[in-house]
Amino acid sequence: MKNFEYAAPRTEEEALALLAQRPDQTAVLAGGTDLVPLMKKMLVTPQRVVNIKNIDSLRGIHAHSQGVTIGAVTTLDQLLEAPELEPYPAVKQVIAKLGSLQLQCQMTLGGELCRRPQCWYFRNGYGLLGRRGQLVEQGDNRYHAILDNQGPAKFVSPSRLAPALIALGAVVRVAGPGQQETTVPVERLYRTPKDDHQRELTLSPAQLLTHVLPKLSQGTLNATYEVKHGTGPQPPLATASVALELDGSGVVRSARVVMGQVAPVPWRSREAEEVLVGQRIGYELAELAGAAAVAPATPLSQNQYKVQIAKTAVKRAVLLAAGLETGGL
């Protein structure tokens, strides 16, 4: 690992001041499960590392009338045990299956949202896009994107919680230099990079993700269904998170369908949402939603199989949210 200067500030202001001096050469450290391995491999070589875990205001879960506010450095095992998250099964279902005991105790919510892609070309030093996508296109792309992959970016968004949080309409609070503070929908944290100078995250390096705020989902049905190969801590092949609002007679008033591990960003499927709205949830409707979600898919040479898996993930997430039998494991 290349050496760096290290600071563990106690307040947000101190952290922002440390970030502001040389933002491009500064990395934010939280749980360290992603940053430390990246630094060990010299894929990231910051001159300064700012550890934000000692900042009290970034910790903990607070329930209020609009929902909950979760500090960015809250660890996943704390989230799993939090009674405040009971109305959000979509989030809890992900965390319960996310990684090992060690990862859950170490990984933070903010870090999970901001972790870098697992694409093996990126992790082995060929850059995020891998020669403008050529390496992925001609190489081993079995775990790469099936949607939004026509540009140079063909990796999949690594965050497991982002699809669930987007389905729940969550926003994040972002603090920036000079007391500047904004709230950004989780959806807008991500983008598909078009060239080597763009990152997959829209946050500027001087900004700090401080809190995550899932909206109160009174009566909103929500669920996540992840399709994994085996039971280990490895990432799933495809996931889907669904949030449904039903009216009194069981007809879907509004729906949000977000797929994970299928595109360079958490992929919101408006097509599937359109299929669901105005209908009653049932097996056939769920099947149609799944088919609509993967209709625009453009699989690469080795990941044709992911289309079927993503389709099934959407179908089962819809059924799970509605409390119906999914037919799967």
Binding site: Y6, L29, G32, T33, V36, P37, V49, N51, D77, L101, Q102, L103, C105, Q106
Partner: peptide, 9 residues
């Protein structure tokens, strides 16, 4: 709490 010492500074 169990953590991985290899990824902890």
């Amino acid at each position: 709490k169990p953590i991985s010492a290899a990824t902890t500074l």
